[in-house]
């Protein structure tokens, strides 16, 4: 049995009261250093040492006054400014996209082609606005992106690139410029580190940070974030588990 005898003595109380007071007066936004565990001691010994300390202080003050060329005191340690020495690296698409043309090579792998492969010798049809307007190719595309038409983003003058609303040519790798035209608030959040996934360092003085590109998470033709099936759930004892567990092979991301 833990019989704990408590000896409440005066210095303990003082220390404790000091601690309590400093706890109470703690300012929440400041980085609060822990209050010293020492505190006021009022024993006879303490009084004696106080007297000695005072004497020492007076003596040293006198010496300080007598020594005009004493070395300057140590500079106060200032907070080290963290300079961003590393970059925020934004992931970029490797190249313009490759499209499956619907044929397989001798090994059975689908044959892909760049946009320009086909579109170089096809006249752009400005009347095409949606998938329904297409007579051949791309009819399997699911497009759910507001009221945008194909040529809102695709550059009919050069299919290996994209274009901004004012017609300026934009490389596929710089697609974020295109998105930002409409999605300004998201872009602002993104630039301030509040939108888009990231890995690496929060402190750019210590290491770089890698961020996703818009199209890493949002499919350009149907940008809503896909639905998912949670694969990890709390498994506490006695917790109600109404629903049977997900099979292990369950898909994680569901694109609809």
């Amino acid at each position: 049995m833990a019989l704990i005898v408590v000896i409440v003595e005066c210095p303990t109380q003082c220390r404790v009261v000091t601690k309590a007071l400093s706890d109470m007066s703690r300012n929440f936004s400041s980085s609060n250093p822990n209050p010293a565990r020492g505190g006021i001691r009022v024993t006879g010994f303490a009084r004696l040492s106080l007297v000695i300390l005072t004497l020492v202080a007076i003596t040293s003050l006198a010496f300080a006054a007598l020594a005009p060329f004493s070395s300057p005191s140590e500079p106060v340690a200032t907070e080290r400014k963290r300079e961003a020495r590393f970059a925020v690296e934004i992931h970029k698409p490797d190249s313009p996209p490759l499209v499956e043309i619907g044929l397989n090579d001798e090994n059975g792998n689908p044959i892909t082609a760049t946009c320009a492969t086909c579109h170089a010798n096809r006249e752009p049809d400005p009347s095409v606005r949606t998938v329904e307007d297409l007579k051949s190719f791309h009819r399997e595309l699911v497009i759910d992106h507001g009221k945008l038409s194909c040529f809102s983003c695709h550059n009919s003058a050069d299919y290996s690139s994209l274009k901004l609303a004012d017609g300026t040519r934009v490389e596929f790798t710089e697609v974020m410029q295109l998105c930002a035209q409409c999605h300004g608030p998201q872009m602002k959040d993104y630039e301030n580190g509040v939108h888009g996934g990231m890995v690496g360092h929060w402190d750019l003085s210590r290491g770089p940070q890698q961020k996703n590109n818009c199209v890493d998470c949002h499919r350009p033709h149907a940008p809503q974030f896909p639905r998912m099936i949670p694969t990890f759930k709390p498994d506490d004892r006695f917790l109600d588990k109404h629903v049977p567990p997900v099979p292990e092979s369950a898909p994680d991301l569901i694109h609809e």
Partner: peptide, 26 residues
């Protein structure tokens, strides 16, 4: 100086972490 594991894992980018004392922090 690294980001927390839960933030890096978040596929939706819903998590924001940083230094309250840095006025330019996210």
């Amino acid at each position: 100086g690294r980001l927390p594991a839960c933030l890096e894992a978040c596929p939706t980018g819903a998590r924001v972490f940083g230094d309250l004392n840095d006025p330019d922090s996210p």
